[in-house]
Structures are given as structure tokens and as C-alpha cells.
Simulated assay, not measured.
Amino acid sequence: MNDNAYWFNYDIELEDGQSTRFHIALDPLTLTMKPASPEPFPPWTELSYQQCKCCRLSPNTHLYCPIAVNITELVDRFKDILSHKNCMVVCETADRTYSKRTSAMEGLTSVFGIVMATSNCPVMNFLKPMARFHLPFSSVEETTARSTSLFLLGQYFEFKKGRVNRFDFDKLEKSYARVQLVNEGLLARIHSVGKRDADKNAIITLHSISQFLSMEMDFSLTTIAHLFERGPDA
């Protein structure tokens, strides 16, 4: 991995003193995450195991699901942690440090989000630019603004290359509909791994966000539209 890799260190400290660090490094050119766990991988990471309905990969060429491989460590460490358990989460980047006292579920949701977006899953690759500007603990409103803004910026570059001649959210809406299928597939993969629910609820939260974003595309981004309304003297 290039020394210029974009990196994120997540430190999660539970209220009982248990502490875990996750290091995430992205290739500066491809924005693909450096593999988080070495082989051998558990059986539930095999591509053919509970393969997502929208998966574009073939077990003939890809033995493992790229996302499953990268969340193996997360699932293993948190499979028996209750999702509502309090913790302190610190995310350190090259530019700044974020911290929040929150639930294990919200902390894991933030980690899952960037891992899923950068694991080189063909369905999730459209989220790589947003992962480059990762915002830990982002609200639904923040996620909506970031995802739509970056999508339109991407459309602008496509327009300059002559690849598109109109801007709309139809493509983005369809992309998020496929993200929902990936979330469902990952949930099915890890459903029997742990006794409790923090890792599962993190994916459920991501699933809820992707459902919300898909709905927002249909309803003209109503939660952020008011931010752009100008008064009569503006």
C-alpha cells in the first residue's frame, strides 16, 4: 500500500474498559481498502454463501465476498456485544480527530459504512468518493447532503467528458436500491455468527439509511430542500 494512503483509525472503548482499534487504509488511486484480515477466512465469507441477490461477481473467479472478508474482524470482536452498550468512539484521520460517546451500534455503523464502501464490491464502488471524505457518526441529513452532492459532482465530470447530457437522481436512486440488497445479504451472512446483536444492528442501521436515501430521491430531497430556500431579500 502506498505511503500516501488515506487512513482512518477507529478506537472503540466499551464502558467495561474493553478497547478495540480498527485501522482502515485506502489506496490513494483506487480508494480500495487494504485487506483487514489475513487468510484463512471463515466459511461465511465465501462468495457462494448467502450470496447477495444483486452480486455481480462469480464464485468461479472470486472465492470470497470482498466485504465479508473485510468485516470478519469486526464481526468476530463484537459478535457478543449488545448494541445499546455505551462506549467512547474516537476516529483519527490525517486531518482531524472525531469523538463521540455513543452506543456500540452507532460506532460500528460508522466503521461498517466505510469498510463496505471501499472493499471493492462492484455494487458499492459508487460510494468510494464519499468514503474518501468519510464523516464519522453522520446524521441522515448529513449523509443525504454528502451523497447527493458528490453524485452531482461526479455527473459534472461525466458531462465534461461527454458521457451524460442531463443530471437527475435516477441512477443514484437505483444504486441505493442495490445497496439495500447488499445490506440484506451481509445480514444473512452474519446472522448465525454471534449470540447478540451489535454487529447486526449496525448493518440494519445502514440498511435503514439506504432505504431513506432511496425514498428521498422520490420525494425531492425534502429534508434538505429548505436549506436552499431564500427569503425575499436574499
Rank of each mutant, 00 (worst) to 15 (best):
F133S: 10
F167I: 02
Y156I: 14
S147C: 13
S149Q: 10
A104P: 01
N86A: 14
D170L: 12
H84A: 08
N120W: 08
A117F: 03
S110V: 04
V111S: 08
N86Y: 12
P136T: 05
V111G: 10
R178S: 12
N120H: 12
F112M: 04
L152C: 05
R132T: 11
V115W: 04
V164S: 07
Y98I: 02
S119P: 09
L186C: 08
G107V: 01
L187M: 11
Y98R: 07
A131L: 04
A104E: 00
A131G: 05
E142N: 08
E92H: 13
S139V: 04
D168C: 02
R132I: 10
P136H: 06
V164W: 04
R166S: 13
T148S: 01
N125P: 01
K171C: 11
S149P: 01
P129V: 08
R96M: 12
C91E: 05
I190R: 00
P129L: 08
A177L: 04
Q180A: 01
V140I: 15
L172N: 08
E158G: 07
R166E: 11
E141N: 14
E184D: 14
D80P: 07
A188G: 08
R189M: 05
V182C: 02
V89L: 00
N183C: 15
E173S: 14
N183G: 12
T97Q: 10
E142M: 09
C91T: 11
F159T: 14
I190P: 04
K161H: 02
A131W: 05
F169W: 06
M116A: 14
R146K: 11
K174W: 09
I81H: 00
R96H: 13
F112H: 06
K161T: 02
L150G: 10
E173V: 11
V182H: 03
Y156C: 12
V193P: 02
P122D: 09
E92F: 09
A117M: 07
F167V: 03
A104L: 06
L127T: 11
H191P: 06
L152M: 03
V90G: 02
S139D: 07
M124S: 13
R146F: 03
F167N: 02
R163S: 05
L172E: 08
N125E: 15
C87N: 07
N125S: 13
I81D: 00
L152S: 03
T97A: 02
F137Q: 03
L186Q: 09
E173C: 13
R101S: 10
R96C: 12
K128E: 10
K79R: 14
N120Y: 04
V111Y: 06
F157N: 14
F167D: 05
C87S: 11
L186R: 04
E158D: 15
V111P: 03
I81Y: 03
Y98C: 02
G185W: 05
R96N: 11
E184I: 11
F157A: 13
R163K: 14
V89N: 00
A145T: 13
G107F: 01
S103P: 03
C91H: 04
V193H: 08
S99Y: 10
Y98M: 01
F151Y: 15
G107C: 01
S110N: 01
S147T: 14
I190D: 01
F133I: 11
N183R: 04
N165E: 10
H84V: 07
P122K: 05
S119H: 10
F112R: 01
K160S: 13
P122F: 06
G194P: 01
F151P: 01
M130A: 15
S119A: 15
A131H: 06
